[in-house]
Amino acid sequence: MANIAAQRIKREFKEVIKSEEVAKCAIKVELVNDSYTELKGEIAGPPDTPYEGGTFVLEIKVPETYPFNPPKVRFMTKIWHPNISSVTGAICLDILKDQWAAAMTLRTVLLSLQALLSAAEPDDPQDAVVAKQYRENLEMFQITARHWTNVYAGGPHVNSDCDDKIRRLVDMGIEEHQARAALSSYNWDLERATEQLFS
């Protein structure tokens, strides 16, 4: 690993650890290996959002050319958000692409991602299905996002209606996550989700 990259990551790692956000348990980073090329990040779901109470784990890969190129970041925790792929966890955020600046740090990245959870940008979507739901049926979107937060990120809000519908599909032999994804995509319309799964 290039000298500057390692130097910077070490420094930023300390910066995050000492930051006031860590003190408030809002963000966190951990080393995955000794070479500082891969890290594990964590952000807390922001209050007053469907993600509240959840903890979201991020995969952070540091390129050879860091900090002149942005880190490659992906959600490891499954999440329902217009700018994050519900399948791969890939993120659509300008600072992780062409708006990256070498003076930015891991801390700024984590805080920006947290801000993205508070304020989605449905006009620049990563996941077209989620973005469509967000634009056309905000209430349904919030129910779905809260349910995913509960199931995958340890959020406190159990939605028994969602759980029931998933159980119905699981009883028909569908894998649980596949059932959840289908129901989420069809606004929890059991009939249409079933149709799609068996077509």
Partner: peptide, 21 residues
């Protein structure tokens, strides 16, 4: 370094400052 990384990505007239925003 900044210029070299950008140039290797085909960027030339559009290279901006390294500061945030």
């Amino acid at each position: 370094m900044h210029f070299e990384v950008q140039i290797n990505q085909g960027i030339s007239t559009g290279i901006a400052c390294m500061a945030r925003e």
